[in-house]
Nucleic acid binder design. Structure first.
Lengths: 223, 223
DNA sequence: CGGACAATTGGAACGTGTTCCTATTTTATC
DNA sequence: GATAAAATAGGAACACGTTCCAATTGTCCG
């Protein structure tokens, strides 16, 4: 439906206000929604606490009371920033993803063919996630469990993933993406997510996860 | 890893006993685990209640107390049959899936090319699921949220899906599946699941979901 | 049939996500 | 700097998944 990806750096459009606060399309308070430095800091502390707890004990260890305490914030405040545990975790995922994406943007990906480059990027990312299994479990499960109220945040992440892939697929002419390029990137993103879920739930080993992705990419990018 | 799919009719291997009851590889009590007709009937009532509630109000409406009451069973009994809400819903999914699979087995799928047949089957199935959005939401979300304790049940469903696809891909010589056939089927299954999740969470319209699948299948089965 | 053991019932109790309320602190406006 | 509005703190309360237990019912073996 979208032939051109929005740039990831775009400023979200303000579509409504909540309690006087302009709210971007996402339901969680995004950084741009936050006025004061203290608020930005609170938001950061909350996400830091979330990731620390997730990294240590996975999805179940991310308990709202624990997050609030660790972030030195009242429970009500936590809920003002993130309306649910899922919103919180998906927002954390988004931040992590943005981090990896900017890291990736600098380092050129080696590989002669498109398929090789995509595989390299995905394997690198996957390896990164597998180095912190609990965190990955927490973030992945939140992402997959999210219902329509988290639509906006999910969409952000999905777009980040797709744009990450298309950038690797067409490093030179990223502007001239065809519909098919984007479609392929989406399919690959889907497979990657499924593979990740399989790994997180213990259905697939790390090796199998890698293979699964490799097979899919080779099938999809054989030209 | 598995070059040949197990047949779906296989009797599960008994690997342990629980409270004197032999338990198949799944953690939920499967039909084969149940001795008396009364027990099979209880199990059926529970799954019926689950599906009725899910169909009416989705994931959130499947409340364990409500299921127990509707199935005319004590809460403790419900938990004896299905150790968690997720187990319950994934088992319901499994039953539904088996039903559609047997329905499908009879009706021949039309379409000249492999791709066409696969697309037809998936679209048909997808349409069926979309006709009961709440139920689909409940079952899909449970499936994606399941953690490793539901591994066995999840595996069953995954295999059912893969075998459904390979049967359509190779209607004649289903015995001579190549590694690649199975790999492709798995990838398609992954994409289908992701598309379904996207639809369930309101990210994709029904039309987009169909297109997404079509694109993936055409890319994967272009020979 | 009687007795042992498993299954079921009915319901209390606990944990964690979520909501809600009041008092206090911070921020914005003049 | 004073005051109104918004944000935060602190914590009680509620909902639902889950666990647990005592009493009852069902099942099977001698």
């Amino acid at each position: 439906m979208v032939s051109k990806l929005e740039r990831t750096g775009d400023v979200p459009i303000i579509i409504s206000t909540r309690q006087g606060v302009p709210v971007s399309s996402a339901n969680s308070l995004a950084v741009e929604d936050l006025g004061s430095a203290a608020q930005r800091d609170r938001r950061k502390r909350i996400l830091d606490a979330t990731i620390a707890l997730a990294s240590q004990g996975g999805f179940d260890a991310v308990q709202m009371r624990a997050v609030a305490e660790r972030a030195d914030v009242a429970l009500g405040t936590l809920y003002r920033y993130f309306p649910s545990k899922i919103h919180l975790l998906v927002s954390a995922l988004q931040r992590e993803f943005e981090r990896t994406e900017t890291l990736l943007r600098d380092k050129p990906v080696d590989g002669d063919t498109t398929a090789e480059r995509v595989i390299n990027v995905l394997k690198r990312t996957t390896r990164g996630m597998q180095s912190d299994p609990k965190l990955t479990e927490a973030l992945t499960r939140a992402f997959m469990f999210a219902d329509s109220s988290v639509q906006a945040e999910i969409h952000q992440v999905g777009m980040l993933l797709t744009s990450m892939l298309t950038r690797v697929m067409r490093p030179e002419a990223h502007d001239e993406l065809t519909e098919e390029d984007v479609a392929i990137a989406k399919v690959i993103g889907d497979v990657w997510l499924s593979a990740l879920v399989g790994w997180v739930t213990g259905r697939n080993s790390a090796a199998e996860t890698g293979q699964q992705i490799e097979v899919a990419v080779k099938l999809l990018l054989r030209d």
